[in-house]
Deep mutational scan, measured.
Amino acid sequence: TEVDLHLGDITIKLKDVSEEIVKRAKELFKNGWSAEFVKKWIEEAVK
């Protein structure tokens, strides 16, 4: 499945990412993480 994760003005296309990771990524962004950091976190999380 593909998900578009909207973080501010940046959209990250996610492939084969669990709902849990998407939820967590949104929380991290809301908590002040930059979109770049969230993207890196996701990449690490799906390895």
Rank of each mutant, 00 (worst) to 15 (best):
T1W: 13
T1R: 13
E2M: 13
V3H: 11
V3Q: 12
V3S: 09
V3C: 13
D4R: 08
D4T: 14
L5P: 02
L5Q: 03
L5W: 03
L5M: 07
L7P: 02
L7Y: 05
D9T: 10
D9Q: 08
D9W: 02
D9C: 07
D9Y: 04
I10C: 07
I10H: 08
T11V: 15
T11M: 07
T11E: 06
T11D: 04
T11K: 07
T11C: 08
T11A: 07
I12G: 03
K13D: 07
L14M: 07
L14R: 02
L14P: 01
L14Q: 02
L14N: 02
K15V: 15
K15F: 13
K15E: 08
K15L: 10
K15A: 09
K15W: 09
D16C: 09
D16R: 04
D16M: 05
V17K: 01
V17D: 01
V17E: 01
V17H: 03
S18H: 12
S18G: 10
S18V: 06
E19S: 09
E19W: 09
E19F: 08
E20Q: 09
E20Y: 06
E20G: 09
E20N: 10
I21C: 06
I21A: 02
I21N: 01
I21D: 02
V22S: 04
V22N: 02
V22Q: 07
K23F: 08
K23Y: 07
K23A: 15
K23H: 11
R24K: 15
R24E: 11
A25N: 00
A25V: 04
A25P: 00
A25D: 00
K26G: 07
K26T: 10
K26S: 08
K26A: 11
K26F: 08
E27Y: 04
E27M: 05
E27S: 05
E27L: 07
L28D: 00
L28V: 01
L28K: 04
L28S: 01
F29R: 02
F29T: 02
K30N: 15
K30V: 09
K30Q: 14
K30R: 08
N31L: 12
N31H: 12
N31S: 12
N31P: 01
G32R: 01
G32K: 01
W33H: 15
W33E: 11
S34P: 13
S34K: 06
S34N: 11
S34Q: 05
S34W: 05
A35W: 11
A35D: 05
A35Q: 06
A35C: 08
E36H: 04
E36R: 02
E36A: 08
F37N: 14
F37K: 15
F37A: 15
F37H: 14
K39R: 15
K39D: 06
K39F: 13
K40G: 13
K40V: 09
K40Y: 11
K40E: 15
K40S: 11
W41T: 00
W41K: 00
W41R: 00
I42W: 01
E43Q: 07
E43S: 05
E43F: 06
E43K: 05
E43N: 05
E43Y: 07
E44I: 11
A45G: 03
A45I: 14
A45N: 08
V46C: 06
V46G: 06
K47M: 12
K47D: 08
K47H: 11
K47N: 12
